[in-house]
Amino acid sequence: MNLLGEGIAWIVDPANYAGPQGWIVRMLEQLFYTFGAIAVAAVIAIPLGYLVGHTGRGRDIAVSLSGGFRALPSFGVIILLALGLGIGFKAPLLTFVIIAIPPILAGAYAGFEAVDRKTIDAARAMGMTEWQVMTRVEVPLGLPLLIGGVRSSALQVVATATLAAYVSGGALGVFIFQAFATRDYPQALGASVIVTALALALEGIFALIQKLVVPRGVVAKEPKDVRARAPRPRATTGIPVQEGK
């Protein structure tokens, strides 16, 4: 059985992509969930993350939340919300906002924290106000990590958005649930390939944005490696120099 061939055939069949029930419309719905959830989540999470990052209060809570929320079963949350809100896009969108917040929060916070304290001290010494320190130093320098958080959210939501179909929220999951109920493997494969391709495209776009937002002339502060050599004071001659932090 050449399942892959049948899956591709499913994708390119005009009967499957055209019209209001076709996969192009469903794919747009999938993207609507992804960008809708990210937009709402960003409005909530970025200011909060910046606040945490700038003041240094609530350290690691953002990261713990982000890790912990991974355990939140989106499927259950969608169903619970749908029981209250009825069918359609509302329950899934709200669920996706909830799962999109923690990575953006963590990205915003981590972006600030990754800025070298000495740079900030220098900015203060130059007479910048707290607001200027934030907007002119911390935000631009932290942008790559923030975009990293947004990217993480986008990929989570775009994969999870297939579950929206369970409560009649549309998107590409429609094909997958129907294919499961009728054992239509080519359709299941075709729709999965589209979801995966969508995820990869988003991944590529965000990776590009992440590169573009690195301020010119700045060596990216993004910790590419977790090699933690820096914090360890190096013995030079005689007394080790402990850098104050």
């Binding site: 009825g86 069918i87 409560v167 009649s168």
Partner: peptide
């Protein structure tokens, strides 16, 4: 046709009542 996956459960009834 609108697929609703709860086998005629609450979502189906809700969709009928709100004229979806």
């Amino acid at each position: 046709f609108t697929p609703i996956e709860d086998s005629g459960g609450p979502l189906t009834i809700a969709a009928l009542k709100d004229n979806t």
